[in-house]
Simulated scan of single mutants.
Amino acid sequence: MTTPLRLAIIVSSTRDGRFGPVVASWFTGLAERRADLTVTVVDLAETPLPTTITGDPTPEQAAQLAAVTPKLAEADAFVVVTPEYNHSYPAALKNAIDWHFTQWRAKPVGFVSYGGISGGLRAVEHLRQVFAELHAVTVRDTVSFHNAHGRFDDGVPKDPEACERAAGVMLDQVAWWARALRDANARTPYAA
């Protein structure tokens, strides 16, 4: 049997009263049902990172990074759960991305977005460009919740069948890329 893929789910919103944990909890439950995945959740609100990058990390910054960096490094793939703030993604996510480089390299990234009328898709489009610069591979299909607060009832989407189908397609793509890239890296390490 193939070794399960290690999926890191990143909850990117850190605001008080955030809706991200509702979306992330639902999605994490779906991902954990899959035999081909082991799941780790990295909630940026629970693992605050340094906000100033000035060369090598100070001892205090290194301690903050130690809560996140190994989880990202060990992952074979990522799914970012993100809201849309001002037509883009949260500053905490940009900070987490910028503190890390090799951890993203040659790994797939999927997206679960939520927000107002656009469902967070403008944040996803910005993130695709950022992850391309980091030599990560973003998958085409996403899970998107427009007017997200009204789309959930007791932590579950009101249209669970369609939402689970979309999540399944995206996770299949993430798993395919993760397996292909993990195997390729084992044969020939990726050179940036």
Rank of each mutant, 00 (worst) to 15 (best):
T2H: 08
S118H: 06
D154H: 14
T40S: 14
A92N: 03
L7S: 03
G120N: 08
R179S: 14
L127A: 02
C163R: 13
L127F: 01
A178E: 10
V41Q: 06
S12K: 15
Y85K: 09
V23Q: 07
V169F: 11
I9C: 07
L5P: 00
N185S: 14
H87C: 15
L121V: 12
H135F: 07
G20K: 12
A191F: 06
F78H: 05
V143P: 01
T82Y: 12
N147C: 02
D141C: 00
S118Q: 04
V124K: 10
V124L: 10
M170I: 01
L37M: 11
G115V: 11
G120V: 12
E32Y: 05
T102C: 01
N185C: 07
E133A: 06
A167S: 09
L127R: 03
V156A: 04
V124S: 10
V22M: 14
T54Q: 14
D76T: 06
A175S: 15
G55D: 08
L121R: 11
A192R: 12
R33P: 00
T51Y: 08
K71E: 05
T142K: 05
V139F: 03
G29A: 15
A178M: 07
A167L: 03
M170G: 00
V22K: 13
T58Q: 08
N95D: 08
I10N: 13
A24M: 11
T52Y: 12
K107G: 00
A31Y: 02
D159S: 14
L5G: 05
S88M: 08
D56A: 15
L134R: 00
T142N: 14
P4Q: 11
W99Q: 05
L72V: 07
R18V: 10
T142D: 12
Y190P: 00
L134Q: 01
K107S: 00
P21S: 12
F27I: 01
T14R: 09
A96R: 01
G119I: 10
L65W: 07
A191V: 14
R15S: 12
L181A: 02
G110W: 04
K71Q: 12
A67C: 02
R140H: 14
L72H: 01
R179A: 14
F131N: 08
L37N: 06
